[in-house]
Amino acid sequence: MFDEKDVILEAKHITRKFPASGGRTLTACSDVSLKLYKGKTLGLVGESGCGKSTFMRFLVSLDTPTEGEIFFHGKNITQLKGEELRQNRQYIQMVFQDPSASFNPKMKIRDIICEPLMNFKRIKASEKDAVARKFLEMVDLPGEFADRYPHNMSGGQRQRVAIARAIALEPEIIVMDEATCALDVSVQKTIIELVVGLQKQKNISIGFIAHDLGLIQSFAHQIAVMYLGTIVEVLPGEEISTSAMHPYTQALLGAVFDLNMDFSKKIESIESEAPSPLDVPPGCPFQNRCDRCMEICREKRPALIDVAKGHQVACHLYT
């Protein structure tokens, strides 16, 4: 299913360090390598604060990695500047985690949706109204919302405006950072069907960050699991609930609230202290929370190795 000639974007050994208080260094991403394939969806899951958004922001050139390179159609995009950078934006669009923060509060929804289209001269000013309405309706919002301001809408309505704006440009890659988490499950389903439909029609690649494992397995071709800045497992989307091998991935699966769960069950939780990107231990990043931790896990960082077709794990249990 994943043919090397279909790789549209490849991130190689991406590391991002931030200066932190007290002269310390925070490592948000550590040696991350991932590929996006044409017409396929890569799902990215992992603990809050593990570096998912930091990584995805590199794809849209909003930040530059401390180390590593990202190739889009074979061209390194981490060093783009000026007009080249601007042009590249139309091929890779991102829906941000915090949509309200990315809107100009003084602009009407019509202008918000049409801004990128106008910037790249894809439409004329006279077409704005019709275009805005068309895209609003695609994301299940009334066309009249074109006349509203972002603050006069609910959280989930704003989120859908952000999605409408990103798909309007028909980019080759769409990065969606928790782009459906404020939607009710029924609208969410509509949006996923819409996005998957567009993907099939136009062969779009999608990078999708989410916390809902059930959602991500419903349409991701490939899922990468991140923990404390590193990729600990990559596996085919449909296999997440059956073949996950990394103890962290298994812990995630065990913490899902499900309609068929036993509601009298006490909530299990990982008792140990939350890990910090300020003091990443040598060895495996998951060691202090892993109930199968061994001697070697405290000494040596496990490498990501192939365990099956399309399935890689970084864990000493499998080496």
Partner: peptide
């Protein structure tokens, strides 16, 4: 109550919502 909403409701909208909950090992669109 939970039991009513999950098992007893007759409202179409509640049922639509329940049906749309993504679940592990559930529907796939691709």
């Amino acid at each position: 109550t939970r039991d009513y909403i999950l098992k007893g409701t007759r409202k179409e909208y509640t049922k639509t919502l329940l049906d749309a909950v993504p679940s592990l090992g559930g529907v796939r669109y691709v």
